[in-house]
Structures are given as structure tokens and as C-alpha cells.
Design a protein around this nucleic acid. Structure first.
Lengths: 186, 186
DNA sequence: TCCTTATGTAAACACTCGTTTACTTACGTC
DNA sequence: GACGTAAGTAAACGAGTGTTTACATAAGGA
């Protein structure tokens, strides 16, 4: 006989986690509007009604998924002298995990989801970044960071043009690295 | 008596134009998804069914509205030595007219509307800009322009943070001007 | 003047989607 | 081992939306 790990057929915590995990995948892939509750629950292998029971609705589920995605990593742990290279590497290469910024983007079209994305963006990205930059121009630096980041993701994911769809052109990557580094250095 | 201009109660061209005009307003204000056909036709003062009759559906109407918005002005007519200042002025100050880029943004969440926005963005903005920049790095320059522009609108309109909502902070504006000018100069 | 056609309207249709309700079933406890 | 509660499912509900259909009416020529 094998070492039987306790895996009961019915486990609220487990299914709740499964829904949350599936939600991150589907929201990131299809965006808030086009990601249906039925899509998410089908991926999780459960009934659509459980979204309302465990999370209180699609909107709350989105908030939880976005919150969870934001917990995976922070950018204020990067070395300041290598900020440019490392942030671009993170943005461009780590496409395996669920990245929060593209998720926030997709929410922008929905007024309710946008409000949630705004709040989380401010509390969990903008403000920490501002404190990390420091100095009198910290707010402008944080704003510059947001603009370049959002511009990158908008260009790559939301409205990809034929030339650079999917990959990141080397010269464009170099420019991005200089751009992000300049925010820290100036 | 007054100079009676011919204003027949029923004029197909006139109502068609009224729908198109209203569509530009509503699409720009609420985005593709949240702008309902009933919203648009109510503003135009006509029946919702006329959208399908005159344009072939909401999606085609969106395409026509975006196309019309793109016809209002081009950016390749700006003097190259003043490109930075003037493009920022156009983006930041001319909020009275319907600007196409924010409209394109809102379409990104809908897969069908996104395809239209992508094509128009490439044909009417990206390619002309590439030719205008010229040189071996023209494609990279055009991409940089797109990233900064989309980043600006994303930050200002789609996910506005409390600090700079609505207005454009002077130091941020200065940075944007330098950024756009650098694309032309480098 | 009458009649055809284009123009516009009202209402219903068809479909999607998030959510709720009623019911079934497995788990833990006495 | 029976029972009560939690976990899960199936199906229907209700609201919203783009579109189509059936009908009304103004315009303009024969």
C-alpha cells in the first residue's frame, strides 16, 4: 500500500484555492470581461455557483485573484544599480507566472473592476515604489515608472503590432532598461 | 420670413452622420464594451435599430467611429524640432475633440474590437510614423512612441491614480516632452 | 392625387452571463 | 450505524444587450 495523503473528496479550502488559482490563469489570459465564471470553474473542475458562495461574486473573485498575483513578488527588493536590467528581465522573461499589470489592464474597460485595479495599483505598487525611490521627486519617479510599464504591457499584450508581437526587440529592450534605470539614477 | 435651409424631417445621410458623431462621443467616454447601442442612439435621437441598418452592427460602427476620429488630425505634420512640446500639448490639452488613442484602449478588452483597433493603429498611426521618423531605427522609434503614448493614456485615463488624475503634473509633462523629443533626435 | 419607396419606430427575439434556488451526497460526530 | 451539517451539483432565473421583424409614415415622382 502507498502512503495515503489525506485527500478528501470534499474540501472547502482546497476547492476555494482551486478556483482562485484558475481565476488567476483565466483572468490573466482573457481579461476580466471575457473571462466567464463558467470558464474559470470549468478549469477548476467545480460548479459555477461556488464562485458566489466562496468569493461573493465574480468581482470579488477578481479582487482576490489580483491580490494574490500581487503577493507573488515585489519590485522594491531589486538592487538599485541593476534596477533597469532586472525589471525588464522580470517583465519580459517571467511570463510563466501570472503578472498583475496585464491583469489590471484588462480590468480598465469595466468600471467596477477598474476601481478595484486602481486601488490595488496605488496601494500595492505605486505607494511602495514611491517610498522606495525616495526624495522630492519620488511621486514623479513612480509616475514615470507606471507610464513606462503600462506602455510596455499595453504595446505588447493589449494592442500588439505585427513587428514585435510576443518577443521584445533587442534595441527596444535596451531602451527600456535605460529608461527604467534613469528613473532611479536621476 | 427666414432663409429656409433644407432640413427634411427624414434624411438618411444626416441621421447616419448623427449616429456616427454620437458614437464617437460615447465610445470615447465609456469605452467599447460599456457603450451601449441604446446609449449612442439615444444621444443621436434615433432608434437603436438604425445602427444595424446603417452600419451593419455595433462593431462596424465602432470601426467607422475610430476611423473618423483618426481622420481629424495626424502627428506627422509637426515640426521635428518642436515635436516633443507639441505632441504633449496635443495629448494633454486638446481634450475637447475625440482622441483616438484612448478609444483604442477601451477596445483592447474586447477581442473583436481589439482586432479592429490593432489594424487601424498599425495602418494609420504606426506605419506613417515609422516612415516619418525614417532611418534604420525607424521601427524602434515608432515602437518607443507607441509605448510612451499608450503609457501616458493608460496612466491618465484608464488607471488614473489619485495624484495626477485629470491634470498633467508639470515635471511629468517636462519629462514627457523630453522623452518624445529624444525619439526624433537620437 | 395616388402609389411606390425610403425612412424611422416599437416591440420582440435570441443569446450571454452572473447569480440564486432546490436538491443530492459525502463527511464527521454522537 | 444513524443523523445533521457542510460541500457540491444541476437547473432555472433575471437582467442586459445587440439585432431582427413587423409596422407606420413622410417624401417624391407619375
Amino acid at each position: 500500500m502507498e502512503t495515503t495523503i489525506e485527500t478528501p473528496a470534499r474540501d472547502a479550502d482546497r476547492t476555494r484555492a482551486a478556483i482562485l488559482h484558475a481565476a488567476q490563469q483565466v483572468f490573466a489570459a482573457k481579461g476580466f470581461a471575457e473571462a466567464g465564471v463558467r470558464d474559470i470553474t470549468a478549469l477548476a473542475g467545480v460548479n459555477p455557483s461556488l464562485v458566489s458562495r466562496y468569493f461573493g461574486g465574480k468581482l470579488k473573485l477578481f479582487e482576490a485573484a489580483l491580490d494574490a498575483a500581487l503577493n507573488t513578488r515585489l519590485m522594491t527588493d531589486l538592487p538599485k544599480d541593476q534596477f533597469g536590467k532586472m525589471i525588464v528581465a522580470r517583465f519580459a522573461d517571467e511570463d510563466d507566472r501570472v503578472s498583475p499589470l496585464p491583469m489590471m489592464f484588462s480590468a480598465a474597460a469595466d468600471s467596477e473592476a477598474r476601481a478595484i485595479a486602481q486601488r490595488l495599483l496605488r496601494e500595492r505598487v505605486f505607494e511602495p515604489l514611491k517610498d522606495w525611490f525616495g526624495g522630492g521627486d519620488a511621486d514623479v519617479k513612480a509616475a514615470r515608472f507606471m507610464m513606462v510599464s503600462l506602455g510596455f504591457f499595453a504595446y505588447r499584450d493589449q494592442l500588439p503590432l505585427a513587428e514585435f508581437a510576443g518577443r521584445v526587440e533587442p534595441r527596444l529592450r535596451q531602451w527600456l532598461e535605460r529608461e527604467f534605470q534613469a528613473i532611479v539614477d536621476e
